[in-house]
Design a protein around this nucleic acid. Structure first.
Lengths: 247, 247
DNA sequence: CACGGTAAGTGGTCTATACAACATACTCAA
DNA sequence: TTGAGTATGTTGTATAGACCACTTACCGTG
């Protein structure tokens, strides 16, 4: 995509945003570079200034660009959250620990959202969500059970996908065009119930780590609500805290 | 501020945004409520729709509101996460959850560092560290046991301090001049041993959350190594994750 | 050379308008 | 009663233009 298609179903500002993102990813525009001014972009792509601004503003919100009044718009350094905790799926997480991740899909189906899920995903109760239940293994040993609920335009298509041999997060980002931006996560200690214990091959009453995560795409739109159960003896969660805070 | 001042130095959209934020904070508009439509706000405050939209869009980006096309704009559920990636001590943490923190000092003394502690604090084995063992309560109920090891120039002075009625982190920052910058923390689920269970007034074998934290002052100098045990049924840890890549 | 003013270029704010896309409630006919 | 269509109200997208605030470079004057 390098030109604007005016009769496309995609909004013009979105097309421009993706064109710009492409130039940044391809290093045509490098970190620190000044990007063309709003008025230049208007002329180049035959768009009104407000439309161009919307494209740029969204890139700024995502931390891809930054602006300085009177100077211009620039490509941000690529460092967004080095020190904050990275949002990773199980696959990436386990790989970064030097282990080999694998997966058994326990169930994958469309189902109506229950009350809790609907609230988290900000949809109506009973709206269809894609429910995915997977046993996650590290080095062949069961490590966690992950119960995901996904809701977005076109999430039904996930039923067709092979989710045993590819990362769900990667699929969302590349195939579905859902960029994952951030997530809120809760962690809690608990005891394994009989079913979970059997799946994880531990004794009932063993220590487990419960996590609940809401993953957001752009504009703070929730797309995934996932509840997981990790073996307490095999999994440690790392986080990094900073004293300074915005606000 | 409850009216728009047109000759103010503050942008109109900003004034409107703060008016709306005020109504949300004061609970005039509660989570889940629909806020007035764009056109209503235009009429009420005599602003153009784009100006109103900018105010709303910023609140959406901050996660204060969310919008649904064709339905309206709504107040989002209170987000706990925003402030909880912050490095906080127990006192601040519990206060921000709306509970009352209190403390029983179990022991406070200078002692030689054991191997594990010495490694974390980057000092020699046997060097003196200040060891502080405290039972932490929320609303009068035992919530956690915290075992801190501190090492810095002048840490002996802590023996004299009243650590039952004041925050350790506050003392470090104000009295000792040790600015706390960041921390690495690990979390793990486990089962309560008999001693810890007795202190926390739970049954042995109950679920507990183990945390280990290394707190750094400037120049990445470690000053505290703390191991804590939290009641699993009373404590949830919140964190916020950000995606690193720009996809 | 130093300084101040100016012009040009940038993003920031704001208005007014139009139509599209979507959700919901209502009406009316089968 | 049920269903399709419609009216209305919502947000989403897009345009064109205006003026403001800020930054920078240039130019002329002292």
């Amino acid at each position: 995509m390098s030109v604007i298609i005016r009769r496309s179903a995609l909004p013009l500002y979105y097309q421009l945003k993706e064109i710009m993102r492409g130039k940044i990813l391809s290093e045509e525009w490098k970190p620190g570079d000044q990007v063309p001014s709003e008025r230049e972009l208007c002329a180049t792509y035959k768009l009104s200034r407000m439309t161009v601004r919307q494209a740029i503003m969204e890139l700024v919100n995502e931390g891809v660009c930054y602006r300085e009044q009177g100077r211009g718009t620039f490509v941000a350094q690529r460092k967004i959250a080095q020190q904050l905790v990275r949002l990773t799926g199980f696959t990436e997480d386990i790989r970064s620990r030097g282990q080999v991740p694998s997966t058994q899909v326990l169930s994958a189906q469309l189902a109506p959202a229950d009350e809790m899920t609907a609230e988290r995903l900000r949809i109506g109760v009973g709206q269809p969500v894609f429910r995915l239940e997977r046993l996650r293994l590290a080095d062949g040993e069961p490590l966690a059970i992950e119960r995901s609920h996904l809701s977005f335009e076109g999430c039904e298509a996930l039923v067709e996908e092979d989710l045993e041999h590819s990362s769900l997060y990667r699929q969302l980002e590349s195939k579905c065009g859902i960029p994952l931006i951030e997530a809120d996560q809760e962690l809690e200690a608990g005891l394994a119930g009989p079913e979970d214990a059997a799946l994880l091959r531990i004794a009932p009453g063993s220590a487990v780590l419960y996590t609940r995560r809401i993953t957001f795409t752009d504009r703070n739109q929730p797309v995934e609500y996932a509840r997981s159960v990790y073996r307490g003896d095999k999994y440690t969660f790392f986080t990094h805290l900073k004293r300074e805070e915005i606000f």
